[in-house]
Design a protein around this nucleic acid. Structure first.
Lengths: 193, 193
DNA sequence: GCTCCTATCTTGACAGCGTCAACTCATCTG
DNA sequence: CAGATGAGTTGACGCTGTCAAGATAGGAGC
């Protein structure tokens, strides 16, 4: 039988894959994904520099794993924001705000998700593909709820929050500016329903 | 006297800085800025791996230089698009379209410009600061021309084109989808002036 | 015209990186 | 109990960014 918990069992056992992802996610809080070295992650998990290769094909394999985790976090955040809103209009506000907030609070996780060298949209990982769909669906649904029901409109909402989130994360806009811009743009777009 | 042209003069002379930037820009057409090595650029310019240090403080110094060049290209593209449009409304369409097109056609140059490790918006280079201002001003002006005259509205336009450009550059949207979304969003925002 | 200075380009070295290969060891299977 | 297997190890390779020191060419001062 495999021991399933605690990665501290001396030699073998323990879920090292998970431990490595955890360590990488922690590093992602300060550095960008490109600035994180595999050896550094291994060191943080107290294993040799080659141990990760038994759990990930590549450095990129690990980055893909944390990108997928980050994507799940982003989706969860957007979906719970939407679900806990009372009206369709409030749901759109809450969902877009959650997207922007995630980008600001976890900038490196955010752009790991959208890094084309980590995840190629044209040929995404088996686990990433449905996640992308889920995010698009969530945004599309909440936009449809207030009359923004064409593909173009839904994509515009996505583009708006994505751009404002990135600009705020990079420091070109303050979080307040980004959120206010989003509100204002949605107000204008919905002016005549 | 300094010889000003031709970097092919054997040992000394020639504008190596320019030649290195040219080589880096060329590499930027295929690889991301993070994937370009200083030694590789030096090799492309036929100099030793340490020659660049006499013209740039760092690897980052070279990246900053090509980011500034890319920013100038982006601004030029947006401004000429705006200027060659007949009406304020067409100018907004042309300017936003140019921004999105640049992101799609030069994705690596585009995100070198906005890479926070290359240019920190809070503390930009002496040469980058006015460029950022120029871009913001261009967008702000063209947005004001059609009644989007608040800071929030102008930032929304910036966020919209930035996000759509990034999503299209990454492959999450087709160029056509991005452009159509932009048009559609602007139409909605201007529906009741 | 000779010497010196300085900017520029050179070679050489170092640690850190990703990755391949070979080895060790604990556990599961028969 | 034997051996296979999966999970960890050490060692090596070439590449990278950067520091240090040597070489060289052209201009300045005498």
């Amino acid at each position: 039988m495999l021991r399933m918990s605690s990665s501290r069992d001396g030699y073998h056992h323990g879920s090292l894959a998970r431990a490595l992802e955890d360590a990488a996610m922690q590093l992602l809080a300060t550095r960008s994904a490109h600035e994180i070295s595999l050896r550094e992650v291994a060191r943080a998990a107290n294993v040799s520099h080659n141990a990760p290769y038994h759990h990930f094909t590549d450095r990129l394999g690990l980055l893909r794993a944390i990108a997928e985790r980050s994507m799940r976090d982003l989706i969860a955040r957007v979906e719970t924001a939407i679900e806990s809103a009372g009206t369709p209009s409030l749901a759109l506000r809450a969902g877009t705000n959650a997207y922007i907030s995630f980008a600001i609070e976890h900038p490196h996780a955010f752009d790991a998700v959208y890094d084309p060298t980590v995840c190629i949209p044209g040929a995404p990982t088996e686990t990433m593909a449905p996640l992308i769909d889920a995010l698009e669906t969530a945004l599309f649904t909440v936009a449809s709820g207030v009359g923004l029901d064409t593909e173009a409109d839904a994509n515009a909402v996505w583009g708006l929050v994505h751009g404002l989130g990135m600009l705020a994360a990079a420091g070109h806009l303050t979080p307040e500016q980004a959120r206010a811009s989003c509100e204002s743009a949605l107000d204008r777009m919905l002016a005549e329903g």
